[in-house]
């Protein structure tokens, strides 16, 4: 079977074009039709909808999608397994648990002091980091990280976190319960710019730093020892990757809740299109992740208009079957592809 793929430049151009198109549609679509004057008059009704609701929401979707897809691709290289994803190894669950914990135990206080846009991402990051480190430590064997143990440990940590979330919900009052449940379903509706600003501050360094590791990630795929013999400081690379993944996913979870499957299927589709080379995979995944997320957000507003579906439900509804079909395809073809 020849390894024929599209050239990285072609794929990048197509993705950027599609992203611009879908973003334009997404800005325009909604209960209110926006004209050109919305752009020129930020204080008018249309302008407020555009600048306070749709634009931040678009940017939130873009950044969340890019972060989820890129950290997914990085996690797959880190664990040398194309089916790894931060959500499978407990990052999202740990992040969610600590966010719900804060919401239930100190939500009112945070809201009162307007600290939630800063404290919640921080808590999500720390929770995600803690659970990742726990999973990695538990699945480390003498010969490196065992992927089977890793996924099983991730499942156990996920289950523990979910039951923890359940207990917290049980303890919470009706308003917090509603807020936490809605947030857990995944939702990118933005009210104002604060979440967007925080996410930009997190996303740019995370995405740029991860994209720089592409070459070394390729070598990591040869095995930890072999990468070391090629001159890669594997331990330091692994540490950087775990930190960046926890930070990126933590920030998304803090503002978007649980949005699953993006990190799994987006890198996979990119590999099918232009091969597994991480020097391109990470940036292409960021673009396709952003596109996928904007599209999902658009659909979530269109399908049950004028109400909206939590976007996490939609990504799981699309991503789940896509993931299953990739899995079945891999099994049928002897596990030999992508």
């Amino acid at each position: 079977m020849p390894a024929t793929h599209l050239s990285p430049v072609t794929v990048r151009l197509i993705l950027i074009a599609a992203l611009v198109l879908v973003s334009a549609i997404s800005l325009n679509y909604g209960a209110l039709d926006l004209g050109a004057q919305a752009w020129l008059n930020p204080q008018g009704d249309q302008g407020r909808v555009l600048y306070q609701l749709r634009l931040p929401r678009l940017l939130l979707s873009l950044l969340a999608g890019a972060l989820l897809a890129t950290t997914g691709a990085a996690a797959q290289a880190l664990f040398r397994n194309p089916l790894a994803d931060p959500s499978l190894i407990g990052v999202s669950a740990g992040a969610s648990l600590s966010v719900v914990g804060l919401m239930v135990l100190a939500g009112g206080w945070l809201l009162e002091h307007r600290l939630d846009p800063v404290i919640l991402p921080l808590a999500a990051f720390l929770g995600g980091l803690a659970s990742t480190l726990l999973v990695v430590r538990l699945s480390r064997t003498l010969s490196g990280i065992s992927v089977t143990t890793l996924l099983l440990t991730g499942m156990a940590i996920n289950a523990i976190a979910i039951s923890g979330i359940g207990a917290l919900k049980y303890l919470s009052d009706a308003d917090t319960l509603r807020e936490a449940s809605f947030w857990l379903l995944g939702n990118l509706s933005a009210d104002g710019w604060m979440p967007v600003l925080v996410l930009i501050v997190v996303a740019f360094p995370v995405l740029m730093l991860l994209a720089r590791e592409g070459h070394e990630l390729n070598l990591l795929l040869l095995g930890v020892s072999q990468a070391q013999l090629l001159g890669v400081d594997v331990q330091s690379l692994q540490r950087r990757l775990v930190l960046l993944c926890a930070l990126g996913v933590g920030a998304v979870v803090a503002f978007g809740g649980l949005i699953s499957f993006v990190g799994l299927i987006v890198p996979h589709l990119i590999r099918l299109l232009c091969g597994p080379d991480n020097r391109y995979l990470l940036t292409h995944s960021a673009l396709l992740g952003a596109l996928f997320m904007v599209l999902a957000d658009l659909l979530s507003r269109m399908l049950v208009s004028p109400a909206e579906l939590p976007v996490g439900i939609l990504t799981a509804l699309i991503g789940g079957p896509v993931f299953l079909s990739i899995l079945v395809y891999r099994l049928r073809s002897g596990g030999v592809d992508a």
Binding site: P82, L219, L221, L222, L230, G231, P276
Partner: peptide, 20 residues
């Protein structure tokens, strides 16, 4: 042991040796 579970082209795999 040479674990590699990703669909690189053979040329890409060989070229990885030039990293250092």
């Amino acid at each position: 042991r040479q674990p590699l579970d990703f669909a690189f082209s053979v040329r890409d795999v060989i070229a990885m040796g030039s990293y250092p």
